[in-house]
Design a protein around this nucleic acid. Structure first.
Lengths: 131, 131
DNA sequence: ATAGGGCTTCCACTTACTGGAAGGTCAAGA
DNA sequence: TCTTGACCTTCCAGTAAGTGGAAGCCCTAT
């Protein structure tokens, strides 16, 4: 398969696949004409990566996940630990964003939004104290 | 005030303040020795920026907010629109992360986390279909 | 005089790609 | 056969918003 095929089948842009080769996540062979030649193993790997990335794992985590994936003697505890760490990070981020959202929602609600300059949002931004 | 002073008072790292000067958010004057010289106006701006950034506004949004801040004839509706857009972006992000969190939580719950290789997380990542 | 801390500039690095330029390859149609 | 267009190749640069570090002034206190 050429890069266009695996791109379509994996859902990853060709650019991204080349990038993944650059950083050593996949190692397609080359045809005589210099084109990358992907086997079904490669396609599988790329689909794996696409899914892992869509779940928000970083590239480095994907690298680890891939190596666990290819390790017949892996322990599921290793996989679980990685996923739990990632989950905690996501939940932390959600919490931060929810706090931001609440603050902003309050400010937006209180702002009249008319042609006068007076504005609680500006007042908040300009306040001297910390928060 | 030297950069160290405004750094401490605004809560922004000196490096960040220099960066803000680079991109034209502040324009401190210079002392004879070449040191940046910040006035209280500058400090105020930097505190404003620190607060706006902590609320998650992008640098470009901060630039707009600053210009609105300095515009005596601004309409609060302009400020409100900006904040609403930003809020929508945040809420969208929260939604995405919550979906991720739910999926991951489910997978993590179902994974035994022992020394055997069998693992629902891996199965999910390796599944062929899309989702 | 020298040691320290603060200041300066400049360059590189971060994440995970993405866009674009310049050019080789291949299959199909005129 | 030539050409056109869709592929493919590499390489360079840019994204957001800083951060880290090196090399080298400046200033104050001992």
């Amino acid at each position: 398969m050429n890069i266009g095929d695996v791109s379509e089948r994996s859902g990853l842009p060709a650019k991204t696949i080349r990038y993944y080769e650059d950083i050593g996540l996949v190692r397609p062979s080359r045809s005589e004409n210099g084109y990358r030649e992907f086997g079904s193993q490669d396609l599988h790997k790329l689909a794996f990566l696409a899914r892992a990335r869509s779940l928000g794992f970083t590239i480095e985590e994907c690298r680890t996940l891939l190596s666990l994936y290819e390790d017949r003697h892996r322990s599921s505890s290793d996989v679980k630990r990685l996923a739990k760490t990632h989950l905690a990070r996501i939940d932390q981020k959600i919490g931060e964003l929810q706090a931001l959202s609440a603050t902003l929602r309050d400010l937006v609600t209180r702002c009249q939004g008319d042609d006068r300059p007076d504005c609680p949002i500006m007042n908040d931004l300009a306040r001297s104290g910390t928060a």
